[in-house]
Simulated scan of single mutants.
Amino acid sequence: MARTRLRTVDPQAGPDRLRRFRERAGLDADHLGALTEQIDALPGTGWCAGAVVLAGRGPYVAVEHATGWALRYSAWDPEGARGVELPREAWLPMRTGTVFDLASLTKLFTAVAAVQQIERGRLELDAPIVLYADPCEGLVPDHGITVRQLLTHTSGLRAELPLHAYNTAEHTGLLWREKPLTTPGSAHLYSDLNLLLLERVLERVTGRPLDALVRDGITKPLGMEHTRFTPPRAWRPRIAATEDQRIPWAKLDRGLVHGRVHDENAYAMSGVAGHAGLFSTARDLAVLCRTLLSGGVYGPARILARESVGLLLDPPGLGFQVGAEWFMGELSGTAARAAGHTGFTGTSLVLDPETDTFLVLLANTVHPVRRPADNRPRAEAATRLARAVR
């Protein structure tokens, strides 16, 4: 049981001790050193303002490293196409304990919460979701979408709805009435709406909001003290800033977003949503990775049965993307068993059951403004970890 807990080496340990620790984990120290160098170079390329990388194998955290800045800019200058820097003394350095807006990594927690309810018999994976609709919503159309199709993004629902343009009271009705673009089960179409609908289903079968389900079912038993929706203001100096959110490049005019959820729809839902809204640290996410790689247990806490972990991670994955080489690089492996996800704000995690490895890369790629997606640094970091496996 104790072996499932993460182990680290003293950051002040000399190079010889660090090398021995990494070799005990079955990882090549030279490749891990190169991984750190790759991450250090990212702020200079303009890919992000700063980043935190954590990599390990088994219970060993072999790399935990921060680079760049958690907060550097006050705004984005569209005419000059550059960030407007804060006074130098106001910059916040990136630290290994920096808290990030996870964006779509939130979906993984929603998926875990759903599988927990399947274990309890409150939810059926292949049941039509219309069975869980709130009668107060009136006549809800049955499009034949199942819980499984929500979790595998095969419901046929479009990518998103501009829920931020509607009153909160209208959100649930809009989601239930949304008609699929394709026949459910016939094609893969990634959609935030899947996890937003799943959130409504979970609320119906448990009588509890999503933030309570995540707290009591995942983060509290696992000791993930730095993972939550709607972080308190006191956390702000430890949170990585995101975007100078303004129309026309964004969907709302909010100015610099720092300490509040970046996603516009999650913001319209008071920061708690099935597709986005959670904040966390690299270390906390490593605990989640270790839990799943250990069959649902971490220390004395079991949050899932081993069979339920299989549901989440076995191809094609429930909530998790599996064998996605475009951001997992060579860690996706010949067996294509690696599972993980990315987030719009610059977050990602990958865990590989074949090699018992995990990689968390958190970056503020939207600070000070969103830019075209570039997953090459994620894939390169994962490839470096894959090549480190001995």
Rank of each mutant, 00 (worst) to 15 (best):
A273R: 03
P316W: 01
W326Y: 15
A301M: 04
L292S: 14
V261M: 02
P237K: 02
K220H: 13
A234S: 15
A286P: 04
H262K: 11
R306K: 14
G259N: 02
E307T: 14
L256C: 09
E330Q: 04
G295L: 06
V287A: 06
R283V: 03
H226Y: 10
A282H: 06
R233D: 15
R228P: 06
G274T: 09
R260C: 10
Q245W: 13
L331K: 00
G271P: 02
K251D: 12
T291Y: 05
G296F: 10
D284Y: 13
V322N: 06
T230Q: 03
M224C: 10
P300T: 05
A286V: 08
L331C: 07
R246M: 06
P221E: 13
L278D: 02
F229D: 07
I247W: 07
G319H: 06
N265D: 09
E243D: 09
F229E: 03
H226A: 15
L331I: 02
A240F: 02
L252F: 08
R236N: 00
L313E: 08
R337M: 15
R233F: 12
D253N: 15
L331D: 11
D314L: 07
A250N: 14
G299V: 12
H258M: 01
C289A: 14
F327A: 04
P300I: 02
P315I: 00
K220M: 13
Q245V: 13
L256H: 10
A241W: 09
R337A: 13
K220G: 14
A273N: 04
H258L: 07
R260A: 15
G329Q: 04
T242R: 03
R283P: 01
E243K: 13
R228C: 15
D314Y: 00
T281A: 07
L256Y: 13
F229G: 03
D253I: 08
T281E: 04
Y298M: 09
M269G: 02
T291F: 04
T281Y: 06
C289P: 09
G223E: 08
H275Y: 00
T227W: 12
Q245Y: 14
R254G: 06
V309T: 09
H258Y: 03
A335P: 05
A301Y: 03
P248N: 01
L304M: 11
L312K: 15
A276P: 12
E264V: 14
S308T: 13
V309H: 12
V309I: 08
G223A: 08
R233G: 10
M269V: 01
G259T: 00
A250D: 14
A266K: 08
S270T: 03
L331V: 03
A241K: 01
D284K: 15
W235F: 11
A301Q: 08
G299R: 09
R228I: 02
T227E: 07
L318W: 08
L304Q: 08
R238L: 09
L311Y: 11
T230H: 09
A268R: 05
C289F: 11
E330C: 00
G310S: 07
A266P: 12
R306Q: 13
G323N: 05
L293I: 12
